[in-house]
Computed example of a mutant assay.
Amino acid sequence: MQSARAHVNQQLAWCRLLLTQFEQSDLPWRQQCLVQALGWHLKACYQAFIAELAQALRSTAQLPETARDVIQAIPAGREVPAELRELLRLESGDSWLASLLALPAPGKASAADTGADAGKAGGANSQILASDKIAVSKPRVFDLALAKASLAALDEIIQRNRAFCDEC
Results as ranks from 00 to 15, higher is better:
Asp69Tyr: 09
Gln32His: 00
Arg140Glu: 00
Val136Leu: 07
Ala6Trp: 03
Ala73Ser: 07
Lys108Thr: 15
Ala109Gly: 03
Asn9Arg: 15
Leu12Trp: 05
Asn125Ala: 08
Gln32Ala: 05
Ala112Trp: 15
Thr60His: 13
Gln21Leu: 01
Arg85Ala: 06
Cys45Ser: 07
Lys138Met: 13
Leu12Met: 03
Arg85Met: 13
Ala112Arg: 15
Ala56His: 10
Gly119Trp: 03
Arg89Lys: 14
Leu42Asn: 02
Leu63His: 15
Ala152Asn: 10
Glu83Ile: 12
Ser131Gly: 10
Ser126Leu: 06
Ile158Ala: 14
Ala76Glu: 04
Phe49His: 10
Ser99Ile: 03
Ala98Cys: 07
Cys168Ala: 15
Lys148Gln: 08
Ala152Pro: 08
Gln47Phe: 10
Cys15Phe: 05
Ala121Ser: 14
Phe164Ser: 09
Ala73Tyr: 01
Ile128His: 09
Cys165Gly: 06
Val141Gln: 12
Gln32Leu: 03
Ala48Val: 04
Gln55Cys: 03
Arg16Pro: 02
Asp113Cys: 04
Arg140Tyr: 05
Glu65Ser: 08
Ile157Cys: 12
Ala98Val: 02
Ala102Ile: 07
Pro104Trp: 11
Ala163His: 13
Gln24Asn: 06
Leu103Met: 08
Glu65Val: 13
Leu18Ile: 02
Pro106Asp: 07
Thr66Phe: 13
Ala6Tyr: 10
Leu12Val: 06
Pro139Asp: 03
Asp113Arg: 03
Lys120Thr: 11
Asp26Pro: 03
Ala56Arg: 12
Pro75Arg: 01
Gly115Asp: 05
Ser92Gln: 10
Trp29Asp: 05
Ala111Met: 12
Asp155Thr: 13
Val141Gly: 01
Leu63Pro: 14
Ala111Pro: 13
Ala102Leu: 07
Leu90Tyr: 11
Gly77Val: 01
Leu87Ala: 03
Gln31Thr: 00
Gln32Ile: 00
Ser92Val: 08
Asp166Ile: 11
Val141Thr: 12
Gln10Gly: 11
Gln31Cys: 00
Ala73Cys: 06
Leu18Val: 00
Gln2Ser: 08
Arg58His: 14
Asp113Pro: 02
Asp117Ala: 11
